[in-house]
Amino acid sequence: DALLPAPQNISILSTNMKHFLTWSPVIVRGETVRYSVEFQGEYEREYANESWIPICECSLITATVCNITEDISATVAYNLRVRADVGARRSEWGTLKGFFNRITTSLTPPLMKVIADGYHLLVELEDMGPAFQFFVLYWKKGQESRMQQTVVKEVSSVVHLDTMEAGPDYCVKAQAYVEAINRSSSFSQTQCVRAQGGTSMWLV
């Protein structure tokens, strides 16, 4: 039996604190190839004899992607590796080139909808997961220097920001913030509304 090649092109897709390990399939004609994934944190490297920990949800799977979010739950450098199995044949480990630290996750601006309900300025924000808070900035159009900020921690539904005077437009933008890695996304597009039932208008 020819040696089973180790999985190649191992890489990480990490967006908004959701981390996925992906790799190229190992092709063995007429056979089902299965894969197993393990991870190693900085703690394991430095204090636990460089031990590796299996991810049982990604043990002997046929997919070439594994959701490692639950296990990458500290802001340290992680090693990841994958190997292939076909019947009794087993490949060497293919290891991710370099480490992965969740601090490098890419953060997208939150989906946001601004609502005027009478004299009240409200915002609805996308639920991006428990790791996220939002900095919501709002100001009277033309008075950017007097911008106000609110921190929204729990995204339940329509969050009340402030009251509005009749007449001027009020503009709002928001960014996502992850306390665990102390990083923020870029701002969402600005949306402006006006008191007394003005619906959300896209004004840049």
Binding site: D117, Y119, H160
Partner: peptide
């Protein structure tokens, strides 16, 4: 976490406050 429901419009607003008084003006 405080929810305020307008019975006429059926719209619900949410507030998150730390102190124990919340005044909702301009109703």
């Amino acid at each position: 976490n405080v929810s305020v429901l307008n019975k006429k419009t059926k719209k619900r607003w949410w507030f998150s406050v730390s102190n124990n008084t919340l005044v909702v003006p301009w109703l």
